[in-house]
C-alpha cells in the first residue's frame, strides 16, 4: 500500500507514491536521486542526514516521507540556492572543514540553521547547536573556524546587499 506525497524539494515540487514506511532520507536519495544527504546511523545520533524542513533542521532518517507531505525541504544540493556556493560551503572549503566529506552535507545544513538562529554565534552556541552532528575526521576545530567564517561572510553579504 502506497501513499501519495508531494514535497517541495530545493524549490521544486516533487510528487511520488511511496510506502508510508519510507524515510524522508530514502525518498530524497532513492526516489529523487539527491544523494548528497547521507545516512550514518540508525538511532538519530550522527546527523549526516540533516536537511532543512520548513526551515527547521531535521534528521531526515527520523522523519517518514509521508510526514513531510506538503513540506518545503532543502538539501545540500539546494543550499546555495542557485549557481555558486553558499558562504557556509565556501567557508568549509577555505578552512579545511571536511576530510572524507561524508558528514559534511548534514553538518552544513545544521550550520545553516545555526546561523539563521544565531547570526553572530559565540563558540558555546556553535558547539551547542552542532551537538547533533558527528564528524570522525576533522576533530571539529576547522568546522568551528568554518562556521565563524561563514557568519562573517553572510554578514558581509547582507551589508553589501543593504548598501546597494
Amino acid at each position: 500500500m502506497k501513499n501519495k506525497v508531494s514535497i517541495t524539494v530545493n524549490g521544486v515540487e516533487r510528487s511520488a507514491e511511496v510506502e508510508p514506511r519510507m524515510l524522508l532520507v530514502h525518498f530524497l536519495r532513492e526516489e529523487l536521486h539527491l544523494t548528497g544527504t547521507h545516512v550514518g546511523c540508525d538511532t538519530t545520533q550522527c546527523g549526516a542526514c540533516t536537511v532543512r524542513m520548513n526551515e527547521q533542521a531535521v534528521k531526515s532518517c527520523t522523519v517518514f516521507a509521508v510526514q513531510a507531505d506538503g513540506a518545503n525541504v532543502t538539501t545540500v544540493e539546494g543550499l546555495a540556492g542557485g549557481d555558486g556556493l553558499h558562504p557556509i560551503q565556501e567557508a568549509f572549503r577555505e578552512h579545511h572543514g571536511l576530510q572524507c566529506g561524508f558528514c559534511t552535507p548534514g553538518m552544513m545544513m545544521a550550520a545553516s540553521q545555526l546561523l539563521d538562529r544565531y547570526p553572530e554565534p559565540t563558540l558555546e552556541q556553535i558547539k551547542h547547536q552542532l551537538d547533533g552532528n558527528i564528524c570522525r575526521c576533522t576533530g571539529y576545530h576547522n568546522i568551528i573556524k568554518a562556521v565563524q567564517s561563514a557568519a562573517e561572510k553572510i554578514k558581509a553579504r547582507k551589508q553589501a546587499q543593504g548598501a546597494r
Partner: peptide, 12 residues
C-alpha cells in the same frame, strides 16, 4: 527544552 538531545531532535 534547550538541553534535550540536539537541535534537530528538539525541532521534531
Amino acid at each position: 527544552a534547550g538541553q534535550i538531545a540536539d537541535p534537530q531532535v528538539r525541532n521534531r
